[in-house]
Structure formats: C-alpha cells, structure tokens
Design a protein around this nucleic acid. Structure first.
Length: 455
RNA sequence: GUGAGCAUAGCUCAGUCGGUUAGAGCGCUGGUUUGUGGAUCCAGAGGUCGCCGGUUCGAACCCGGUUGUUCACCCCA
C-alpha cells in the first residue's frame, strides 16, 4: 500500500485554503494589473543550462533535476559511474530542471522576445517554484512567488511605482501599517570602495545585513572574522549608526562619502525616489532609508528594498531591487530591470494570524438541493439547473439519504440554504427553502427562491 | 549541512515498574426521530502502538538502525 504523504516539503491545498490563497493572489494580481503589468506564465521546467550558474554553487545544489527518458546511461562508460564523476553523470542523465525562481525565466523570456515586445516591458508572474532545500517551518520545496518586474528602463519612476503597489496591496488586504526600508546598492559599493578592499562589498553586506538579528556586537564579531581591521569596523559602525529622518540621514551620508563618486550617485538616486514618493499620498506604508539593508543577492545594482509589517514578527513580506543586467547571461546586453516579490507564503501566514481573510470567502454554493427520493432525480436535476442558469451556485445531493445527514453535509460545506422538495412540493410547485443559519423555512415558488438567493 | 525532541484510533492526546483483552475527548455510523441539521441520551465501528531488527519468559514502553515530522542553528522566500 502506498503512503498518503505528499512529497517532502510539498502540500495539498484544501478548498478553504485555496479560497484564501486565491483571495490573496487576486488582490495582488488586481493591483499589478492596475499598474499596467501583464501576466506571464513560463514552464515549470527549463533546460538545465538555463538554470545552472545563475544562483551560485549553492543554488545549483538546490535545483531539482529531471531525469532524461530512455536509456540515458548508454553514452557513459562503466568507470564514469563512480561518486567522483557525480557531476558528469548528472549532466548526462538530466537535461531539464524545475524553475528555481521567476526572475531567470523572465530574463530568458525577455532575452528571447525583447524585439517584439517593446521595452519597457512590465510583467507579473504568480507561479510555484521548486528548491531541493531542507523544509522547515514556513519553508517549502514547492512554494509560490508573486513577482512583478519592469525590464528595459533605468527610470526611477519604476522603482517608485513598486512602493505605490505595496501600499495599495497592503491597504486593500487591511494589513497593519508597514515600513518600506529603502537603500541603494551603489551606496554600499561606494562605501566598500573607501575601505580599500576589493572583496569588502560582499563580506560587509553579509555582516551588516544581520544587524537586526545579532546586534552591533554580533556584526563586529562577524566583520572581524571576515578579516576587517578595527579601523574598518569603526567606519562601518559609524556608517550603520547614521540616524534621523530620511533627509538627515542622506545629508550625513553625503558628508561621510562626499569623495566617492559611486556613493554620491546612490545618494542622488535615493533622493530622487524619495522626491517622487513625497508627491504621492501613501496609506499603509512609510518609506525609511536604512543603510544597513543589504539584501543577500549580488545582482542588485541600484535601489534595494524590503518591507516589514509593524507589530508582526515575520521578517520581510515583500522585497526587491534594481539590477543593471537582467538578460546578459542570455546574450542580450543593456536591459536593466527592477522588480518586486511579495512573500506569498508569509503574507498568508500573517493574514491567518491576524484573522484578516474575509469571513464570506469561499467557493461555496448558495444552496443544496436535498434528495428525498431518487424517483425525483430528474426533477431535482432540472430544478438545480434552473437555479444555476439564474446565476446561483447550486449543489445537488445526488443520492437519497436521511434529511438530517444531508443537512449536516450542507453545514459542513458551509452552504447557507437547503431546498427541500418531495411529493407535495412538486405537486404544488412550492418548494421549501430553509436558511440553515436562522432555521427559518418557508414554501416559495422557484422564481421567488431565485429572487431570495440572488440578493 | 549541524544538533536535539517527537511518532499510539480519522483528529488531539493519555498509557503506571517491561506483565492478562492498549484507553479518553472530538469526529464517524446507527438508534432515540421510516420528511428536517446544531442540543441530550444510548449503542457501534475503527489500532500490525511509523517501519526493520535486537534484548527478554514477556516490549507501545529498553537498545540499534531507518523513515517521517517538529524545534534551534546555517541559509533562504
């Protein structure tokens, strides 16, 4: 007998969970659409070379590879089949893999079609991705990403529009207020340059990104472990300690890094985005410049951001940034991009925790037509269909059972009404409609029932 | 990838020192009610105690392995 477990790190979604997930996705989609983004779907699987080398060594490890069909060992020699040859064997027997994120498939799509599409091109994509990671709480091997990206423009208006999208989505989901942490990779890179260490940028950002988690002391240890001397560490401390409102922070930074061209450019970009934001009225989120925000991914080159909800201990629920070369690895140069990703699974958890899903959600039927006697089957079916034709979601109980059982069924399915029809009702063309919540029950004609249920 | 815990009915969990036939609540089925749910009462079904092996006269309980799962790190969404 086979196990009923789903594969490790994967989940079934019940009707109730899907009702909520779809609600969440629909709000996000609606907002993306309103901002002019068009939907895109790409295949679950890509050619393996599309995926490898894009996410670093660790990312390659986490790719799900798909075994070739047929006799995939015929070109291998017996001596190839040893542990030392694992890499060679892997590429020989697996030529496809499951997508690891939505950005690379988008980059491939843009690289392939940029001439026809016309740039800038704005797409959103809500699809599952797969990672052969070890599952943990809130972390799965199959999970959804909600991405929106703009390809083909360096305009910071695009960066700013993502702030407006987050504000719109969170506002409509009735989420608590949020802080939109904003930084610019050029500031970090410029600052790293002043430390005179070629590798400083990555090592420094990895360390200061943990500031929230491990505190300044922990960051100092981490920096020391990564080979920064005390002078550097002091500079980094001063850098992350900058305080005040956004303008004050930027002014201080300007003084600190005035001599560095790269940093000055980053500061100017931050000022431009803030200028645009100030022209709009935000309802949910407030933008906060935060120089300790680093974001792990190395391909960001300009604006970076991360959004956190006030009073919710969930980490960031949306994040993204700007990258200069979206499509370079596919042989197309000079296509910059900027994007945003909602943390769908996390948002779902927050909504659940705070009980923010509307109570009336669901793919529930309005009415269940009860089955009192199978000799009326044709009449029940006809009745049900007339209700459906009038736009009322109707379920027919397809076999005879005790009325109590059928009502319990309706209750379990959260169907608010039952329609009871037997000998006398069909004779009189007057059917019993019962409201399961109030217990109220009366005889009505079909057209009256349609009127009541359509309210 | 590292460390620790947990695994008993459909679900949530008890289970004494290793000792006869492994229990409860909820849920389910039937009855009270052959055309009316939620409440009460009564009855019933449902278990290879995750799996494999070991110790023992005897294992849900002790030991080893394995699989699943949870938590904390690492990393990430």
């Amino acid at each position: 007998m086979s196990s009923t477990n789903t594969a490790k790190g994967t989940r079934d979604f019940s009707r109730n969970e899907l009702a909520k997930r779809n609600y969440l996705f629909d709000v996000i989609k609606d907002s993306f659409t309103r901002f002019g983004f068009a939907p895109l779907e790409t295949p679950a699987m890509e050619n393996i070379e599309t995926l490898t080398g894009k996410y670093g060594d660790e990312g390659d490890q986490l790719l799900f590879r798909i075994l070739r069909s047929g006799d995939f060992l015929k070109d291998l020699e017996p001596e190839d089949l040893s542990h030392e040859q694992a890499k060679k064997i892997r590429s020989a027997i697996a030529d496809k893999g499951l997508r690891y994120d939505l950005t690379i498939p988008f980059a491939r799509f843009i690289a392939k079609n940029h001439a026809q599409l016309g740039l800038p091109y704005k797409r959103f994509q809500i699809q599952p991705v797969w990672r052969a990671d070890r599952p943990a709480r809130g972390r799965y091997r199959e999970f959804y990403q909600c991405d929106a990206d703009v390809a083909g423009t360096t305009s910071l208006l695009s960066d700013t529009e993502f702030i407006l999208i987050v504000d719109d989505v969170f506002n409509r989901l009735k989420l608590p207020t949020s802080v939109y942490k904003l930084n610019n990779r050029k500031v970090l890179a410029g600052f790293a340059q002043t430390l005179q260490r070629a590798d400083a940028m990555t090592d420094m950002t990895v360390a200061i990104d943990k500031l929230d988690k491990i505190g300044m002391e922990g960051v100092e240890k981490e920096l020391a472990a990564r080979g920064f001397n005390n002078e550097d560490i002091d500079k980094i401390k001063n850098f992350t300690a900058i305080e005040g409102n956004n303008n004050e922070r930027l002014d201080q930074l300007q003084n600190l890094l005035a001599g560095n061209e790269m940093a000055v450019k980053g500061i100017a970009e931050l000022r431009e985005v803030l200028g645009y934001v100030n022209a709009c009225t935000l309802q949910n989120t407030r933008v906060e410049v935060d120089f300790s925000l680093a974001r792990g991914l190395n391909y960001y080159t300009g604006t970076i951001y991360e959004v956190q909800l006030d009073g919710v201990n969930m980490g960031s629920v949306a994040s993204g940034g700007r990258y200069d070369n979206l499509t370079e690895s596919f042989g197309v140069k000079d296509v910059p991009g900027v994007g945003l990703s909602f943390g769908a699974e996390r948002l779902y958890d927050v909504m659940e925790q705070l009980d923010l899903f509307p109570a009336t959600l669901g793919n529930n039927c309005q009415v269940l037509v009860l089955n009192l006697d199978e000799k009326h089957n044709a009449a029940y079916l006809n009745l049900s269909n007339q209700l459906r034709n009038s736009g009322i979601a109707t379920e027919l109980y397809v076999q005879k059972a005790k009325l109590g059982k059928q009502m319990k069924f309706a209750e379990k399915r959260e169907i608010p009404y039952v329609l009871i029809a037997g000998e006398t009702e069909f004779a009189a063309q007057q059917y019993q409609l019962k409201n399961l919540e109030t217990g109220e029950q009366n005889g009505y004609s079909l057209s009256q029932i349609i009127e009541i249920l359509n309210k």
